[in-house]
Design a protein around this nucleic acid. Sequence first.
DNA 1: ACTCATTAATGAGTACAATCAGTATGTGAG
DNA 2: CTCACATACTGATTGTACTCATTAATGAGT
Lengths: 223, 223
Amino acid sequence: MADKSRRILSAAAELFDEHGYAGVTTQQIADRADVAAGTVFRYADSKAELLLAVLNERIAAAVDEGARDAATVPDPVDAVAALLAPLLRSAARTPHDTAVYQRELMFGGRGEGGGEGGSSVGRYRREGLRVIDDLEARIGEIIAPLAADGPARVAARSIFAATHIFLVQPSLGLGHDADQLRAQVAQIVAGARTEAPAHAATPPRRHASAHEGGTPPEGEDHE
Amino acid sequence: MADKSRRILSAAAELFDEHGYAGVTTQQIADRADVAAGTVFRYADSKAELLLAVLNERIAAAVDEGARDAATVPDPVDAVAALLAPLLRSAARTPHDTAVYQRELMFGGRGEGGGEGGSSVGRYRREGLRVIDDLEARIGEIIAPLAADGPARVAARSIFAATHIFLVQPSLGLGHDADQLRAQVAQIVAGARTEAPAHAATPPRRHASAHEGGTPPEGEDHE
DNA sequence: ACTCATTAATGAGTACAATCAGTATGTGAG
DNA sequence: CTCACATACTGATTGTACTCATTAATGAGT
């Protein structure tokens, strides 16, 4: 029954909003969804996957909204800021669970200890990774006019890294400092500008530390 | 007994090396250290704290070694690479536990869920945070000649963020791609260079998106 | 309608980090 | 030596995410 899935997911969403991820037991979720304890795990591989499922939707929506806003902003740094703004707003609403989301998204909760093998990425984690991949791609597109595709993609990755750390701050006891993130974005964009610019003014200055090898032909770093 | 602490810590170190963090139970650690199960938790607040304690030492040593190497390298990007090299080498040896280390360091495993209360940062987590703070500061120092202190520090933060994501890759199923990290470092350094340079050639170009302003309204973290 | 196979659901059971009431061990005073 | 107290240690117990053998539901073929 697809209805059962809906019940479980919205029970989880409600309870996480009410008490926070750590303050909710899977038993409570099962009770509110009116299913047995074990049934929850037929629809999600773990408690963490439930959080991923719930927040994936919100974050995907936030990214979409941000992308719409960003399209109207000419300055690239401002555009990236506009892209991220809804995401940061959503994160500010539930800082801690957002940090947990980032944790589970990037690390995967489950084992894979000493033994090798089954890097089983749960369904909702995969979905979440797609969302942030999408975010990164959009950042890359914004920067693209300033630099070749390669550098733009590299910069996008750095910007995502900075954003990730930003979102994680609450679990460090620190508050959010959006200005710092913006400064990082501005700097990284400026850096991308200096490399293989597409239309920019700065000429490609030969650099002692220029990485050797053929130009990274494709960032095709698929798994 | 300080000796008991040593026994517990080295039992943990051995077992983590043998079976990986997830493949070890606190009971096993207690057994090998020849103490009761509960005693382990008198010396570390959690299993995660044990990993932090064990890897803090290695990582601090790697950072020290890297700092020594970096001092002899003139080019700043190369210097940052040299600084990070031992750390990356150490991470390559135990990729997964390093990822777990990063997770526990940045997120803290422990609760702080729905309820409020003691954002209790364990002793070894605090220690680890000091280590990475130190790393970030060293990165900042390397960049310092190229930019004012502020921008250098901002860039250092971005570089750490990129490194953090890099170290986390294994838990995503992806392999390490050191070249990508280096490209990010080069770009971020280039970006720092464009901002308020101290001795560099590039003149301090006034930037449309320059942003200082007062302290931000501080996202009130509460859940 | 009746079988039978496949899939879904159940809830008691398991594993394991972490806790805590109880016990041992050490320390100083009389 | 004995008592009173403090501190270290213990291991049975607890809370909870997750599993699994069992039972129920579903539906295709006859």
